[in-house]
Design a protein around this nucleic acid. Structure first.
Lengths: 186, 186
DNA sequence: ATACTTATTGTACAAGTGTTCATTAACTAC
DNA sequence: GTAGTTAATGAACACTTGTACAATAAGTAT
């Protein structure tokens, strides 16, 4: 607890990478050995801070449809809103994580390129004027990154053609104005 | 060049975080001071490796529609395939980046939770049997992460309600079976 | 209270970090 | 080729890191 608070406090003024373990334990008034008893490196401590945030995320999205077997677009909307409300609640920590160097610029770099892809035109032509272009393109960019990550994790068991086919299939599939079955498998 | 090769070589056997700058310069047969002349930390060197990969990514996706003003779903498909072919070409480096600790588990953790969200049912109900569930849920999870990141970057200038509305709007919008205008603004 | 277990402390050590600086080597003019 | 610029080297410095170990403090049984 003291270590987490110490880290969060230090991250207000300093880049994550410039914070030494010595800094953390000195502010927390603990021995350096105590840190190493619980964590291997400061990233692990940061992850635990994140775990607390994620615990709230899980509660937030589950809340709207507990005791609901079949839910409609209304309940889904409520659930989605809860997620974003959760992020708003932890806005400072989310900001901290993105601003500090804890977040690698590698990801940012890939996604910035993906955003420039004309793929976004897929959703922008005959555009829905309500749609925020910035949000939609970030959505699209990270969505593709998500597919790439999944692909890498399978050890590239699919072909590039298959991946492209899948993307187009996902983009083509729509079934919003209907009733959904909730997934209870998790 | 020598430093990049040295790092890639070391990453075959060792976690990124366990590779010291001393290791890198010794294998590259260079002085440690030379490293610090060019880079602040090893992450910066890794980013430069990534830049080389991204340079190829850009070429890959632009190739299918150079000299094309209006393109159809065919050219788009070609472009998408090129992206995934590029990833396949650099499969070893992509794998290296994901397997090593260069990639923070933070992201993974968030996305794993997002994947469990019933949001995927949005696309799964009345499901297209062709769609790969794993890929689709990773797509969906990172897509939402993308929106969150964009949101954070704006300094939370939108409300949570607006964000949820936008997500539903994006999911609702479809215009695949048409002709697209290419975006020349980049 | 006693004995047992676990957490924290202080100290020490070899190795790595980030920086500085004078010296040497390599590259670019003209 | 010579002069001027830039890059790489080696050595040194205070500091952080990761690890180890014996000593002490805190917590948890019975």
């Amino acid at each position: 607890m003291a270590l987490k608070e110490s880290l969060i406090s230090l991250m207000q003024n300093k880049d994550f990478r410039d914070i030494s373990i010595t800094d953390i334990v000195e502010l927390a008034d603990l021995n350096r050995g105590t840190f190493y008893k619980h964590y291997q490196y400061k990233e692990e401590l940061l992850e635990e801070v994140m775990e607390d945030v994620i615990a709230d995320l899980i509660i937030s999205y589950r809340e709207p449809y507990k005791n609901v077997e079949i839910f409609t677009i209304k309940e889904l909307t409520a659930s989605v809103i809860k997620i974003f409300e959760h992020v708003a609640n932890f806005a400072n920590i989310y900001t901290l994580l993105l601003k500090s160097n804890a977040w690698p610029t590698l990801l940012e770099r890939i996604c910035n390129e993906l955003k420039k892809l004309p793929l976004e035109d897929l959703e922008d032509y005959l555009p829905n004027p309500k749609i925020n272009i910035e949000l939609a393109s970030s959505y699209q960019a990270y969505a593709i990154l998500g597919m790439i990550i999944e692909w890498v994790n399978t050890g590239f068991k699919y072909s590039a053609d298959y991946m492209a086919e899948q993307l187009l299939e996902i983009l083509n599939n729509k079934s919003v104005n209907s009733v959904f079955k909730i997934n209870h498998s998790f």
